[in-house]
Simulated assay, not measured.
Amino acid sequence: MKPGRLASIALAVVFLSVVVPAHAATIRITMEDLVISPADMSAKVGDTIEWINKDVFAHTATAKNSDFDVMLPPQKSATFVLKKAGTIDYYCRYHPNMKATLKVEP
């Protein structure tokens, strides 16, 4: 193999390892008995949050900073992909005592 070709292959491997993002995670958060669980969660930009409503009435996952406002019908789930880093406090608009925090890292 020619030395120039070997250098090109090595450069391509390094470039792909930097450009290809790590696999995003799906983080499940449950709403049951008027409680969000877990109430404090860490995630990364690109991760998907899946809220699962196990109650017989509707809930929302409403960010105080307006990043998201997700409707959760009874016994259903909904998802949202995190787009930016920061701490997001959120609550249920129908049941304001249901509160939680997402810490989103880059």
Rank of each mutant, 00 (worst) to 15 (best):
M1S: 11
M1Y: 09
M1D: 10
K2D: 14
K2A: 12
K2T: 13
R5Q: 11
R5H: 11
L6F: 11
L6K: 14
S8L: 12
I9Q: 09
A10Q: 09
L11R: 11
L11Q: 10
V13N: 07
V13C: 11
V14G: 08
F15Y: 11
F15N: 09
L16S: 10
S17L: 10
S17Q: 10
S17E: 08
S17P: 05
S17I: 07
V19R: 11
V20D: 07
P21L: 13
P21F: 12
A22S: 14
H23C: 07
H23E: 10
H23S: 09
T26S: 07
T26A: 05
I27V: 12
R28T: 08
R28H: 08
T30S: 06
T30L: 05
M31A: 07
M31S: 06
M31C: 06
M31Q: 06
L34T: 06
V35F: 04
V35S: 05
P38L: 08
P38N: 09
P38Q: 09
P38H: 09
A39I: 07
A39D: 11
M41V: 15
M41I: 13
M41D: 04
A43P: 00
A43I: 01
V45I: 14
V45A: 03
G46F: 04
D47C: 04
D47M: 04
T48E: 06
T48K: 05
I49W: 00
I49T: 02
E50H: 06
W51F: 13
W51C: 02
N53V: 03
N53S: 04
K54P: 02
K54W: 05
D55K: 13
D55Q: 13
V56Q: 11
F57L: 15
F57T: 15
F57M: 15
F57I: 15
A58C: 14
H59Q: 08
T60K: 10
T60L: 10
A61R: 00
T62P: 03
T62M: 08
A63C: 13
S66T: 00
D67P: 01
F68T: 03
F68N: 04
D69I: 03
V70F: 06
V70M: 08
M71S: 09
P73N: 13
P73V: 11
P73R: 09
K76R: 14
K76C: 11
K76L: 12
S77R: 00
S77M: 01
S77G: 01
S77L: 01
T79C: 07
F80T: 06
F80N: 03
F80L: 14
V81C: 11
V81S: 13
K83T: 02
K83R: 15
K83E: 01
K83F: 00
K84F: 00
A85T: 05
A85I: 04
T87Q: 15
T87E: 13
I88Q: 00
I88P: 00
I88D: 00
I88R: 00
D89S: 15
D89Y: 15
D89R: 15
Y90L: 09
Y91G: 07
C92Y: 06
C92K: 03
R93Y: 10
R93D: 12
R93E: 12
Y94E: 14
P96C: 03
P96E: 02
P96D: 02
N97P: 04
M98I: 12
K99D: 13
K99E: 14
T101W: 14
T101M: 15
T101V: 15
L102T: 00
L102V: 04
K103M: 03
V104C: 02
E105M: 07
